[in-house]
Design a protein around this nucleic acid. Sequence first.
DNA 1: AATGTCAAATAGATAT
DNA 2: ATATCTATTTGACATT
Length: 250
Amino acid sequence: MAEDDPCDTGLVLGLGFGGKPSLSNPKHRRRDPSCPNQTSAGALLTLSLSDDAFTARTPAFNNPLSTVKKEMDVGVDQEAMEADLVSISLRASDEEDDGAARKKLRLTKEQSSLLEDRFKEHSTLNPKQKQVLAKQLNLRPRQVEVWFQNRRARTKLKQTEVDCEVLKRCCEALTDENRRLQKELQELKAIKLSATPLYMQLPAATLSICPSCESLAGANVDSTKAGAGSAFVLAPKHHLYKPFSHPATC
DNA sequence: AATGTCAAATAGATAT
DNA sequence: ATATCTATTTGACATT
C-alpha cells in the first residue's frame, strides 16, 4: 500500500534515509503540518523518487498534456530515476513551497474514454481488472481505483439530482391536485348547502329526534323565538329526547 | 489577477 | 482486513 501514501507523491522525503519513512499509518498521510513528511525548516532532506511514481507522473510516460514540470525542475534526472530509486539532497527551503509534492495528473482523452468504456461495463473493478486496466492506461492501479471512486460519486450525484427533480415535479403535481380537490370540496359544500332545508343546516348536536314519536327536538332551541317568518317551526310542545331516560311510551 | 469549475487525490467513516 | 463511500482539499485550466 506504499503506493497509496499521500506523502508518497513520488518524492519521498526522509531525514537522512534513502528509503521511505514509516508512513504506514494512513492518518499521517495528509499534507498538513503534522505530516511527518513535511519539511521542517533547515532540515537536510533526502528525496527519493520511485519509478512507479515516476511512471505515473512524468508526461513522457503518462500524459503528454499534463504539465508535470516541477519534478524535472527540482533537478531529478530521468536516467537516475529509471534506475529505480534516486536520492537527491535538497534543503528544506528549496522544498518550502512544496508545490511539486502533489502534482495533479490530467488524464488524456484516450485514457478518459477507455475508463468511461470500462465504467459502462462495470462500475466497480476487481483487483485483477484494476491491474490490467492500469497497465493498459499506463497508470498506477491506485489512480484507476480513485478514478472509479470519483466516477461512481459523480454518477450518484447526478442520479440524486435527477431523483430530486422527479420528486419536485411529483410534489408540484400533488399540490395542484390538492388545490383542485379543495376547490371541488368547497363547491360541493356550497351545492349541498343550497339544497338543504335550513333545519338540516343546524348543527347536528343541537337536534335530536324522538325515536318513538319521531318529532324533532332542539336541545337549546327556544321554540317561542321561532317567529312566523322562520323557515320551519319546531313542534310547539316538544320534549327533549334523552336517549337513556326516554319512557317506554311518549 | 481574481474567480469559478472540474476532476484527481486524500482522509476518515462505513460496509462487507 | 479490505473495499467502497463521502466529504473535502487541491491543482489545473478557463473565463472574466
